[in-house]
Design a protein around this nucleic acid. Sequence first.
DNA 1: GCGTCCATCTTGGTATCCCAAAATCGGATA
DNA 2: TATCCGATTTTGGGATACCAAGATGGACGC
Lengths: 221, 221
Amino acid sequence: MSQMQQVETQLRDMILGLDLGPGERLTERWIEARFGASRTPVRAALLRLETEGLVRRDGRNWIVSPIDLAELEQLSVYRQVIEVAAVRITCALADRSGVDVVEALLLSCDGETSREDWHRAGMDFHIELARLSGNDFLHRGVRDAMTRLARARWLEVRDEGARDRAWAEHHAIVAAVRAGHADEAASLVAGHIQGSRSRLLSSLREERRGLRARGFAVVAA
Amino acid sequence: MSQMQQVETQLRDMILGLDLGPGERLTERWIEARFGASRTPVRAALLRLETEGLVRRDGRNWIVSPIDLAELEQLSVYRQVIEVAAVRITCALADRSGVDVVEALLLSCDGETSREDWHRAGMDFHIELARLSGNDFLHRGVRDAMTRLARARWLEVRDEGARDRAWAEHHAIVAAVRAGHADEAASLVAGHIQGSRSRLLSSLREERRGLRARGFAVVAA
DNA sequence: GCGTCCATCTTGGTATCCCAAAATCGGATA
DNA sequence: TATCCGATTTTGGGATACCAAGATGGACGC
């Protein structure tokens, strides 16, 4: 694997894992030293992460993208649009056997599963579900949206109840898709995303002070 | 304007204007010489154009992205999903005065207008229409999709009838959005995109031999 | 004539160097 | 002590040097 890809993935992991706080300044030279690469791959990685929305420019400088509540709201609307469209397309397919793979993602989580793995499986569920549509743009759209949402979801305070409810909704979606019930699947997906959105945003709005105190830039809606 | 941005925009214009044929190989050193910049800005430009889908890697090399009929088909589905969603959102807004700007785009074209300007106005209509929704992700999604479609639309053989019909459909969409008739606007947009898609694809499929003869890589569906 | 193999050239990947602009820090001054 | 100003450092943008891997091509052997 080339150094550029190494820098890119490691930096992405640090950002998504909140090792680098939202709003934190990044210097090319710090990254260079941190990962033992030269500036060329570092700059390439930053350019790619910029298009993913994980990093952005602040004047001449680089910063880790702040958490922007308005952006999260728009993102949820976008997700709702494309995920609903994706399941509708999937329901219209003759071969929907791919749902098994998606269901396996759900079944892989139980009481022993770490918080990290729940988090990842939650993202992958939506990404893989969209992939079943066979439309790369819907798939990539969901993937990009989930990437941008990842840090916020990590920050969200979730009770176990919410997690179990989300998992139940995921199962219901799988069942509807498997049965090919497009309208039902669409409304389940829409409702699920709507619910995630309101929980996420209200949680973040409550937590906002505490997060800023931790040095995390959280931009209001 | 920085050199990187110059290289990026000029290279993009050459690709979209078909001065660089689909499938053509690009070497960093050729671009460097062509634009009088060094490899640093050249590489940055290539990385950004890669995320726009205008350029891609072929092994270790760079090539101008071929025209991929399967991709165009998926792209049209994606467009349909997000553009319909965008006009529905716009129709639900209290203030829809932004449609005037979009309508002005249509009115700026007449018999004297060059083919280039018609082409650009056709793209901008859809992009600006999506922007009215106020959702950045829908807006960017449409912008990216139109960028990827641009070369194919350029290649399409269009009679003046098709162009006028498209313009009439655009006007109808504007009227429906202004009146706030969401369902009507949605079905007009869906129909318009559907029609564009079938005309575009059938035209390209017919032209495919000729295009390949001109050295343009056209990948089948 | 044809295929194979080795020298050579080209290419992208990486490291490093230079530069101009911006930020920073210290000291002089009011 | 507060403030202003300039020297110094730091930063990103750009240019260039170097390298390894892959492509190319021509000579040699069959």
